[in-house]
Design a protein around this nucleic acid. Sequence first.
DNA 1: GTCTATACGATGATAGAC
DNA 2: GTCTATCATCGTATAGAC
Lengths: 194, 194
Amino acid sequence: MSREVLSTKKQFIFEEAAKLFRDKGYLATSMRELATKVGLEPSSLYSHIKSKEEILQKICLDNAEKFIEGIEAIDQEKQSPVEKIEALIGLHIKIATEDLTSVTVFNDEWRHLGEASLKEFLSLRRSYESRFRKIIETGIETKAFRAIDSNVALFSILTSLRWIHYWYKPGRKLDVTTLQTQIIDLLLHGLKKD
Amino acid sequence: MSREVLSTKKQFIFEEAAKLFRDKGYLATSMRELATKVGLEPSSLYSHIKSKEEILQKICLDNAEKFIEGIEAIDQEKQSPVEKIEALIGLHIKIATEDLTSVTVFNDEWRHLGEASLKEFLSLRRSYESRFRKIIETGIETKAFRAIDSNVALFSILTSLRWIHYWYKPGRKLDVTTLQTQIIDLLLHGLKKD
DNA sequence: GTCTATACGATGATAGAC
DNA sequence: GTCTATCATCGTATAGAC
């Protein structure tokens, strides 16, 4: 519902803003700069948006929703924990490579959300982490996974999936499928060859 | 050499600044706020420091140096790639848990460095990554490691070591040694039990 | 070294003409 | 919807008295 389609001009403003937020950070981006990129005077932006923060809110909450919807779909499948983790890694890679810009902002700038939307964001994040953690714990209980601390596993996996948006560029030597195979291999089997 | 000992008051300013930078980000931290924390009027800060950026510079470059010194010490030992990777994981955990605040700022705020110090910082980082990558590549060549893309391995490991500063709090249930064992186990052997 | 006072630019956002 | 003009506020930093 909140991920509505935007009129073309409004969408263009959001896209240019996301690029600026990604490159310089939310706080370091000024509305004057954004206006220049869009080809408007600063004040004209406010015919399309309510405030600077509205842009950040949409970016952060839309991405949070994508992850939540993704994990819900994966979790209701009748699959083993190993398969679910593989699917989750795939989900992160898919979201990151489909819209590199917005996921970078989502990852790095959420803390500048205002009080109300920050609260909502953190609640969504906690819910995502908690579902992810449960999948890991099930894997440990069924002896599919090593008996590792579930938080160590959770955060190691989550953050090791976060470098993708720093590193991946369309047209890199490694294509998305290979990248995915390699990351799954590394996280599931480790660096060391037995 | 640049990691000099500071007079107590100056040091106090740096410590309070680091806490603010960690909690709110560099740009969102004002000198007025810092002055309040330190118990001075804003202008009085400038009897101790040259500029706001000087603080960020010291934090970022000191930590960069710690990592460089650490990897140099590890790399000149006559050890196997596996042992070196274990030692590197230990280095990251040691630095992160010894001074959680400054390593967080180092990790998250370096991009707000000015032109000159940013250049220096990036050069140090590239040098660190390149030494790390060489260790991984040696491990792959000697068949100690899986034949994975060395960049995928490098960044997965590096970033999976970056969550520690988000998560670790002195007095957490997991002590540092256990944490280290678990992370080494996960990165070297993977999540899956064979 | 600390203070008061202040310079001076940049910020997000609004009012109102067209 | 876009503009010009502008507001109020806050940013880092400096000058100069004590």
